[in-house]
């Protein structure tokens, strides 16, 4: 990276620009946190005005009235299997697209990409009726299965492209040692692609955690809802309680921020290794 060719450039102005952009990314988060501990009257006093005391009761209101406890558990119940199964499927299907020949390979690939292009809003109504027919409405299953299905195209393409960049010699060596295909996949390919897998995991986690439309439509029972629905809950037809709403938003994003901060090193490594030819 040190060799990207601008090492002779002046440092200070660039550094200012960089940190300016860094600031721009965090200020809204800071203001969000600040608003979440204000009273409704404080909100009108200006964004940077501090409240007299931190109104943590906003969090209590969001947590209890918004039933965040239940929603949090539901989000976890849905996200974990979605991420895990999508990765497994992505690795297996990606393996096929990277190394194997099979009939209609190109057509199947085209069909998979549809899933990335067509917005969910476009097919949510037929999906609802289909799920109803399969008796899956109002279950965890419907949230898990549909979101796995939505993740398959990206997971497949992502894993396939990462596998294509592995040096063929390694695979050949393994095959010459007498390894079967599942063995090559599990013992050679997957360990080599660990960073790419963790990148994929993080992306799937973010997308699934933030998914709004599917749980909104496919689940009617309050006890099965996920967090993002809770986040927008405090909007009445005519009333809105900004501090409680922002407190709810903080509760929803906190887990993703934590996961991101823990995994971000690995994750960016994954991006990097995926792109290396």
């Amino acid at each position: 990276m040190a060799r990207s060719g601008v090492s002779t450039a002046p440092t200070v102005p660039f550094r200012i620009v960089l940190w300016l952009f860094g600031l721009i990314t965090v200020v809204p988060f800071g203001l969000l946190l600040l608003t979440s501990i204000k009273s409704r009257a404080d909100v009108l006093k200006g964004a940077f005005a501090l409240p007299d005391y931190p109104h943590f009761e906003n969090y209590v209101a969001a947590w209890t009235d918004g039933r965040f406890g239940t929603y949090f558990v539901n989000s976890v119940i849905v996200v974990v299997p979605v991420v895990a199964v999508s990765i497994v499927l992505g690795v297996i299907t990606g393996f096929a697209f990277a190394y194997l020949r099979f009939p209609f390979k190109k057509s199947i690939f085209v069909i998979l990409t549809f899933g990335m292009m067509v917005p969910t809003e476009a097919f949510i109504i037929p999906l609802y009726y289909e799920m109803l027919y399969l008796n899956l409405i109002n279950t965890y299953w419907v949230l898990i299965l549909t979101q796995i299905a939505l993740s398959v195209p990206f997971a497949t393409i992502f894993m396939a492209s990462a596998m294509r960049q592995l040096p063929t010699e390694v695979l050949e060596a393994a095959v010459l040692d007498g390894a079967t295909r599942p063995q090559v996949l599990l013992r050679v390919i997957v360990p080599l692609l660990a960073p790419a897998v963790s990148t994929l995991a993080l992306f799937l986690f973010i997308w699934t955690w933030n998914e709004f439309l599917l749980p909104l439509i496919l689940v009617n029972d309050d006890s099965l809802r996920t967090l993002p629905i809770g986040a927008l809950f405090f909007q009445g037809k005519y009333t809105i309680n900004t501090p409680v709403l922002t407190a709810g938003a903080v509760i929803v994003i906190a887990p993703i921020v934590v996961v991101y901060l823990i995994f971000q090193r690995k994750f960016i490594e994954g991006l990097t290794s995926g792109a290396t030819k």
Binding site: L89, G90, I92, T93, F95, A96, F97, Y99, L100, R101, F102, P103, I108, I111, L112, F114, G115, V118, A122, F123, I124, P126, L127, E130, L145, T146, I148, A149, L150, V152, P153, A155, T156, L171, V175, T180, R181, V184
Partner: peptide
């Protein structure tokens, strides 16, 4: 890896099936 054996489709089918049922058919 392709030359090694048959059953290539077995690697595609699980992912494809779940995708077809829950995304492609509704599309």
């Amino acid at each position: 890896l392709d030359r090694m054996g048959k059953g290539n489709l077995l690697y595609v089918l699980p992912g494809l099936l779940i995708y077809a049922v829950f995304v492609f058919v509704p599309i």
